[in-house]
Amino acid sequence: MRLDKFIAKSTTLNKQQVIVVIQAEKILVNNILITDCAFQVHENNHVTLEGRLLKTRPFRYLLMHKPAHTICSNIDEVYPSALNLLKLNNDIEHVSELHIAGRLDVDTTGLILITDDGRWTFNITLPTNNCSKIYRVNLSKVITQDIVKRFAEGIQLQGEANLTLPAFIEVINSKEVLLTLTEGKFHQVKRMFSAVGNRVVKLHREQIGDVKLDVAAGKWRYLTPLEINSFYK
């Protein structure tokens, strides 16, 4: 973890105040003066501020049901950030330290994971870890067995050198499917169906890895220890 982030998670200082105390030579790491905000510190390091030992707050892991017309960003843009939903009842402190582990489009609803543990996020989003995601997809045209087969073999997306990894379709009805992916390219679900002549009308993520969505739209809960650890398989 960067030194400036470590101090922010160990104190009530804001970002600018953290920079000031580092540059003012008030921080020691293992009894060595450090003035580089990007210096990497680890859990077993001894970090002090003017002689006071610092200890970071515990990491947090949340599940949220993202509603439509919100974005997976830490700041509001044209649409509001989904993280605003954590602030409604002042239930969560230090929301600015949190981030979303993987994104959904503004009009896509469903499961997002929120944390302040960067290493945990990396484990989820690293392509080689093949973390599965399940989407409920409503389509403009009837799904065919040929499309099911093509998805399992890989789809050539425009602008991509390689085929997508095998994706698996479970047909619910003629225009509704459950789609399982193990990668997360930009707008991938919509681009895959577009590549086979269909169009996504509605998109909803139901599951990431072993974690299933079980709260109403706009609501959230903390992950259980079992759910948190499931991403270290």
Rank of each mutant, 00 (worst) to 15 (best):
I27C: 10
E227I: 00
R60Y: 03
K175E: 11
N31D: 14
G102L: 08
K26Y: 02
N130I: 07
T11L: 01
R119G: 00
R136V: 02
V148N: 08
L111C: 05
H69G: 00
E170S: 10
Y61Q: 03
I124T: 06
H46P: 00
R136A: 05
E227G: 00
L157V: 08
V215P: 11
R60V: 10
K233E: 10
T224G: 01
R52M: 05
N198T: 09
V106S: 06
C37P: 14
I75H: 12
V201E: 15
I169G: 03
T115R: 13
K212H: 12
R150G: 00
K15W: 15
N129H: 15
I71C: 03
I34K: 13
K26T: 05
R57N: 13
H187G: 04
D116K: 08
Y79A: 06
G218I: 01
N173T: 07
P67H: 11
Q158L: 12
K26Q: 15
V196S: 11
W120C: 06
I169A: 05
V18D: 03
K202I: 02
N44C: 01
V106R: 12
T35H: 10
A82T: 14
K141T: 09
I155Y: 11
D117E: 07
N74C: 01
F193I: 09
Y61F: 07
E153N: 12
Q16F: 00
A216R: 11
I143Y: 06
R199F: 03
N229V: 02
R52G: 00
N229L: 06
A68F: 03
N74R: 13
E77W: 04
C37F: 07
G154M: 07
I172A: 02
W120S: 01
Q158K: 14
V142R: 15
Q23H: 11
L98K: 12
S140E: 15
I114M: 05
E43R: 12
D36I: 08
E93Q: 14
T180H: 13
K9D: 12
L53R: 15
G218V: 10
V106T: 14
Q207C: 09
I100P: 09
K190A: 04
V21W: 11
L139Q: 10
N44K: 13
R221S: 08
S132K: 10
D117Q: 02
T115I: 10
D116G: 03
L179E: 14
R103I: 05
N31F: 04
F122H: 15
